[in-house]
Design a protein around this nucleic acid. Structure first.
Length: 497
RNA sequence: GGGCCGUUAGCUCAAUCGGUAGAGCAGUUGACUUUUAAUCAAUUGGUUCGGGGUUCAAGUCCCCGACGGCCUACCA
């Protein structure tokens, strides 16, 4: 029979070639997309099963399944590698061990990227690689598009983010990083569950987006006919749980901030927030240090983390504690810094080559000094304490210093990883702090939260941890986009894609 | 939002002063029963991100736009 496409050479059209193969399979009643396939072992499990010293015929038989990533046909025998969730495993396929005609007519027409199942006994090749000798194979799922190039892989950032599945197929480090992300979150939960914390879920759609000062995403409920904000923090609902009598609560979840993107910022990111009654920010210090050390130990296997540039971050031992004021005085070399008026501070900050907006408040100028010349130098873990009260309206004021709050900012790797407070539980002071803020930051006041506080909230410590940033630190990633599977990107114009 | 850089075959990359768009891998055809980036032979494949301009001639120069990266701003 004459195929209409036979006259044209579309061997260059990788998609058309594979589509043709697919059609041919269908014509021969071979389903190229099976509903299931038996898999007795993963690649790693199978390799572990190999019995050193036993004869080939006594080796265990396995059924494995995965995507073809290497395809080396050598006449009547082929070596292929198939990759499953544990990684690659080699298979050896020969013409004479498959049913008559199968090898030449079908097996050799498989493509890189196809998903197949293979059954057979293990053996070791001349060069010592544990391999499955195929007794039979099954095409499970045909791939119509080619994989990225086999050793340069996929390097285009845009493609890596937009088609993360390709990145994960091809780049083992990427796969490893996201596995670690999952492990890190799992170990966090375990650590907190062991300390009797209850995991809760609070609203992402909120009528007042409180707990931070970021711009929210706005959405609308048709049924309730009202405006909602996507949450920018977990704080105010978790504190309601303290009022409710849940003395130890935490939530791990996505928050959304309608702000700029950068190597350290994604519009949606993942926070851990936890609140523990009858402790304070000192208790949070212990808990936070313990949590991060536990995660590093169990997931990374070490408390010494080497950054891509070789700098080693040591998470072991007691972490450094430093007062905000002392750091400012040290960095500016000006013991009188806090006695200067706003204008002098502005001048002095600019003299230090810090770009400062002239409109800023007094304390904001100082905080610019902190963020621009101190924070980047805090590579080893440092709890920065005694932070000016203006910087956070939700914390307790230090007993013997009216100007500061009982807070720490944990900085590691030159960035803020986790802030924690002794939580403000005085509804009168809280209302006043909100009112002072509402004017300048244009935040709505969450009156129901204040109402909750008026019912009495136990003294508590609270902590928030940016999980994505912790993962940057622990896995040596360069960018927050390397820690988020599908980072926010501008959609492509459909006509161009 | 501002500045700089980038976008060439499915993937990774070349292309001199503005002068015929190339290579490796992948694909196709053939050889090959222990390969390891398999090898050997042959071979297909281009809207050079899109649009406009300058020029005898544009991947290359100019303008506009799209997307991305880095820096910066915003994100207490």
């Amino acid at each position: 029979m004459t195929d209409t496409t036979a006259n044209q050479d579309n061997s260059h059209d990788l998609y058309a070639v594979r589509l043709q193969k697919l059609e041919n399979l269908c014509k021969e009643d071979r389903n190229p997309f099976l509903a299931n396939c038996a898999q007795t072992h993963t690649s790693a499990e199978a390799i572990k099963l190999y019995q050193e010293g036993s004869a080939d015929e006594d080796q265990p038989r396995v059924a494995i399944a995965g995507r073809i990533t290497v395809f080396r046909v050598m006449g009547k025998a082929s070596f292929i590698k198939i990759q499953d969730r544990d990684g690659p495993i080699q298979c050896y396929v020969t013409r004479d061990e498959l049913p008559e005609g199968e090898y030449n007519t079908y097996f050799k027409k498989l493509d890189l990227g196809d998903i197949i199942g293979v059954e057979g006994r293990l053996f070791k090749t001349k060069t010592g690689e544990i391999t499955v000798r195929a007794e039979c194979y099954t095409l499970v799922s045909k791939a119509l598009r080619p994989l990225p190039e086999k050793w340069a892989g996929l390097t285009d950032d845009d493609k890596i983010y937009r088609q993360r599945y390709l990145d994960l197929i091809v780049n083992a480090e990427s796969r490893q990083r996201f596995r670690q992300r999952s492990q890190i979150i799992k170990e966090m939960r375990k650590y907190l569950w062991e300390r009797d914390f209850t995991e809760v879920e609070t609203p992402m759609l909120q009528s007042v987006a409180g707990g931070a000062a970021a711009r929210p995403f706005i959405t609308h409920s048709n049924a309730l006919d009202c405006q909602f904000y996507m949450r920018i923090a977990l704080e105010l609902y978790l504190k309601r749980m303290l009022v409710a009598g849940e003395d130890r609560v935490f939530e791990i979840g996505r928050v959304f901030r309608n702000e700029g993107l950068s190597r350290r910022h994604n519009p949606e990111f993942t926070m851990l927030e936890l609140y523990q009654a009858y402790t304070d920010f000192r208790g949070m210090m212990e808990l936070t240090q313990g949590l991060i050390q536990h995660v590093a130990k169990t997931v990374i296997g070490s408390l010494e983390i080497a950054r891509p540039d070789g700098v080693v971050i040591n998470l072991d031992g007691e972490w450094r504690e430093a007062k905000y004021k002392d750091l400012i005085i040290e960095a500016t070399g000006d013991a009188e810094w806090f006695t200067h008026d706003r204008g002098t501070k502005l001048e002095k900050a600019r003299a230090l080559n810090i770009e400062v907006n002239g409109e800023l408040e007094d304390y904001e100028i100082t905080n610019n000094v902190f963020e621009k010349i101190i924070e980047p130098t805090l590579i080893q873990p440092t709890f920065v304490t005694h932070i000016p009260r203006e910087l956070c309206p939700l914390a307790k004021i230090t007993q013997d210093d009216e100007t500061t709050i009982d807070v720490f900012e944990l900085c590691i790797n030159g960035q803020e990883i986790a802030p924690a407070y002794s939580e403000q539980n005085d509804p009168i002071i809280q209302r006043k702090m909100f009112a002072d803020q509402v004017g300048e930051e244009q935040q709505d006041m969450d009156t129901d939260f204040l109402n909750a506080l008026e019912h009495g909230m136990p003294p508590a410590g609270g902590m928030g941890l940016g999980i994505d940033r912790l993962i940057i630190l622990l896995t040596g990633a360069e960018s927050i986009r390397d820690t988020i599977l599908f980072p926010s990107l501008k959609p492509l114009n459909p006509s161009e894609s």
